[in-house]
Design a protein around this nucleic acid. Structure first.
Lengths: 352, 352
DNA sequence: TTGTAGGCGTTATCAG
DNA sequence: CTGATAACGCCTACAA
């Protein structure tokens, strides 16, 4: 039965077998053949609509549809130098802090038609450098979250491919940072109201920029508010790192502990509970990030919430903006933080 | 000062500027020029060591080193059809269950020189299908974890690229599964010992193969052990899903609830605590997976631990084996599960 | 508007 | 053992 205008050309046998061999992946040559035009016409029809006669375009589209055509991203990348891929490098995938970042980054990327490859450095600078070295030729940009690399190495990477940092600032390189000031001062004021006067800051890993930054700000605030403040660390930024630190923390006899992140705060609370130490009656505990788990523990953890998914999203968007040339580069995006008061902080124990 | 044998040829000015233009990325042509050999010799020297004279190889290597050469993976992929990339498709990145999978998969992949790209389907079958469609031309294989796709669609993907499933079985497609039998029967026996006789199974999402599978096994065991067993669901497999289910669970008046996963178990416990219901005195709760957070909550959650990282690792290794042709394909890898008894299960409340 | 030809960086084939 | 040469799939001057 003749069906008016759009007659679909049958697929020639020869073409069909060729497709079979390639696992069904058609090329613009196949389409050209089927539509009776040249390959370049196909290319134009499909990638810059409008620059071609409507009729031809329709015919090409129909053929493409029929063969279920997709561009081969590799061929395109080879030619254009753009892989439409970003790398996200994180220290520890199982750290809840990075989940949010990964999700935010993945969404922003796929919304823009980009693919996200993820590399875990397992808290090792060497492994991280290696992963980056391996990935760098394939990607259009790199998001480095909580990196363990030195400033120089970061710069050297950034010279070859666009880089956006999360939770780390390096001169001349765009970064997405939590607004540390606000979070820290809110937290310390909260503790001041609860009459704490002696505080321990449980630091993060040695090469953590943000841990140092937080402590610096605490020093300022402590001065202003009249706290005694000591830093204990560096520590591994995990549950176990928090557990392991309990002894040293207790030795300092503080009324409150601020952990570098929630993970450590959680570990500290677990260890404390095992020793029969009551939180917050005997010791108040607070953390940073507000990860999954912080409100699960008893008592739930007071923490400074960071916008993790948003950070991931922004980082990718910065990369995107940079590529499309819109860029006021080397910006610093600041994300606000919020103090979440929960049960782990309370009136200071009497220090006698 | 002349330094014996290995004189490094200076980089000719012309070559240097060419490199500059390309952002420092050298090609085998540049190396060929520098080493005074042909491009094909360079290719051979670098990718199949030994098939070339030692002296030439050394010269080529030196030149490559000097120019800091890396292969362009895209060019390679275009020709060989191998991108050395795998895709990992997950329903929800922020679900702790997938962390382990991601980590295991990422390690296995990078150990083999492969890159892992990750796609989140956000619990939507449509989004998942789209992501796969987008990724399929770029990758050498796909790991689908807890997929929401129908069997037919999975098969259709598997016809185009190698697929390994995690937590889902489809005829003819290799998969990595927890050994559901052992976990379920251990759990039910544990509950039997605690004198539970009336149990609710809080099901997972509608399209979850593994949720159905678990319930089927529970039915068998319940029969054998003389339980009353009802299934409530489907439910969203999240904390909120667990919370939302409390009312319906209570209405059924069970002495114990088994949640499809820990996330739901956690939510259920939170909701119960808010209503003043004591776990396990009034209601025992158990889950599956043993995620981060399960031992944080009070009381800590009894659960059937799955080897998540191992599952991710195996899935990637299956893919690898398949590509190198070693494959006894369409295998099912079974991973043992272990009952972890914690505080959320106890002696059954009297049912009056 | 459309077609032709050349090249992106690599590998494979075939001579030498 | 080594060197030309042709592909891989796409894009883009340039020509028609």
């Amino acid at each position: 039965m003749p069906d008016g205008t759009a007659t679909e050309p049958e697929i020639p046998a020869e073409l069909a077998t060729r497709l079979q061999r390639r696992g069904g992946a058609a090329t613009i040559y196949d389409i050209a053949e089927l539509a009776g035009v040249s390959p370049s016409t196909v290319s134009r029809a499909l990638s810059k609509p409008g620059r071609i006669s409507a009729k031809t375009e329709a015919r090409v589209r129909a053929a493409a549809e029929q063969l279920n055509f997709r561009f081969n991203p590799m061929a395109r990348a080879l030619l254009t130098g753009r892989s439409h891929t970003f790398a996200l490098v994180v220290a520890d995938i199982t750290n809840p802090v990075v989940f949010g970042i990964v999700r935010g980054a993945e969404h922003a990327a796929s919304a823009a038609g980009y693919t996200l490859v993820i590399a875990e450095s397992q808290e090792s600078g060497e492994a991280e450098a290696e992963a980056i070295e391996r990935l760098i030729p394939t990607v259009d940009g790199i998001v480095m979250a909580t990196t363990r690399l030195s400033d120089e190495r970061i710069v050297s990477v950034a010279e070859r491919k666009p880089v956006v940092l999360i939770n780390r600032a390096v001169e001349g390189i765009p970064s997405v940072l939590p607004n540390v000031e606000k979070g820290v001062s809110e937290l310390l004021e909260h503790l001041a109201k609860l009459e704490h006067r002696s505080i321990v800051y449980l630091a993060g890993p040695e090469s953590s920029w943000i841990s140092d930054r937080r402590f610096d700000l605490m020093l300022e605030e402590a001065d202003r508010l009249g706290f005694a403040l000591v830093e204990i660390g560096p520590n591994v930024p995990t549950i176990d790192g928090g557990r392991a630190a309990l002894r040293r923390v207790l030795a300092a006899r503080p009324t409150a502990v601020i952990a570098f992140n929630d993970l450590m705060g959680l570990g500290l609370m677990q260890a404390a509970a095992e020793q029969g130490i009551q939180v917050p009656r005997q010791l108040s505990v607070a953390g940073f990030d507000d990860i999954f788990g912080s409100e699960l523990i008893t008592p739930p953890l007071t923490t400074v919430r960071a916008q993790l998914a948003e950070a991931g999203r922004r980082a990718v968007e910065d990369l995107l903006a940079g590529l499309s040339g819109d860029a006021g580069n080397s910006d610093q995006t600041r994300l606000s933080t919020t103090l979440i008061v929960r049960g782990s902080t309370g009136i200071a124990a009497s220090t006698d």
